[in-house]
């Protein structure tokens, strides 16, 4: 078994004349958690959306588990193997929490109802969504609960990798913890994940590697301590100084 589950090679994306991603290269090992940080407009979301083919890259290859997915036409089959967790949760508003998880299992995986039910419940419990919340609609859940249901929806599909696009940045500070906690547990249990986040504590504690993106390229990458605490380039130093400043402000305001 190859240890690289995801290979991104020479990836380019343009919107009109504008270069959004230029020559992105990286690999993700099985069980690895990779964190991507970088300023707004760096192309982080676009990169994640290219990986699950919500956006078509213009050049380059993406290889998922030995499969060159950028050449596949049945994108829905590829997407069913990749979990995606959105900044704004994107739960199906017309479905209850458990039905949100069931939809993919029944309509995409085509599991029999009982089997789907068993897996949905297991997934929901693993993110701490207990039985009394299963029949609630997204609008009746807190942001933290919604995001955890969204994570359950992703993990129930038994994906090869889960992509998180700023999963906590739409949450009130006191709800961020419960989501990060679930993600940390996932990572420890060997799930492969790429996480775009500005939660520095999470990155330091959980990430195996951190990549700093700016202007559509990966500027610097390395172990979290190196990138977050001792970055080399001027641009990233300035960025990290600001991030740590905000981060400590958040922490102190929470303590106070």
């Amino acid at each position: 078994m190859e240890s690289n589950i995801l290979v991104v090679e020479n990836l380019w994306k343009f919107y009109g004349r504008e270069v959004i991603l230029k020559n992105i290269n990286f690999t993700v090992k099985r069980g690895e958690t990779k964190v991507i940080i970088g300023p707004s407009g760096a192309g982080k979301s676009t990169l994640l959306r290219c990986i699950n083919l919500l956006v078509r890259p213009d050049r380059g290859r993406i290889i998922l588990d030995g499969d060159v997915i950028t050449e596949r036409r049945d994108v829905h089959n590829i997407r069913s193997q990749i979990g995606f967790v959105f900044q704004h949760f994107n739960l199906f508003n017309h479905l209850t929490a458990i039905d949100n998880v069931l939809l993919g299992l029944i309509k995409v995986k085509k599991l029999p109802r009982e089997e789907a039910m068993r897996r949905a419940k297991e997934a929901l419990l693993s993110v701490g969504i207990t039985e009394e919340l299963w029949r609630k609609y997204p609008a009746q859940l807190s942001g933290g609960q919604q995001q955890r249901v969204a994570i359950a929806r992703a993990i129930a599909m038994d994906p090869k990798i889960i992509l998180f696009d700023e999963p906590t940045s739409a949450l009130d500070p006191e709800l961020i913890w419960e989501v990060l906690n679930v993600m940390e547990k996932l990572s420890r249990n060997g799930m492969t994940m790429i996480v775009v986040t500005h939660e520095l504590g999470f990155a330091i504690k959980v990430a195996h590697e951190v990549m700093f993106m700016d202007g559509g390229t990966i500027i610097e990458r390395g172990p979290p301590n190196q990138i977050l605490l001792n970055p080399k380039g001027e641009r990233i130093k300035r960025f990290m100084d600001r991030m740590w400043y905000l981060y400590s402000l958040n922490r102190s305001s929470k303590v106070a």
Partner: peptide
């Protein structure tokens, strides 16, 4: 956002219409 989520879990265009957009 709802449509993207539908595609992201692997629904085809038709199934996304049938199970998310239409309802």
């Amino acid at each position: 956002k709802q449509i993207e989520a539908a595609y992201a879990i692997g629904l085809t265009k038709w199934k996304a219409f049938r199970h998310v957009i239409l309802p």
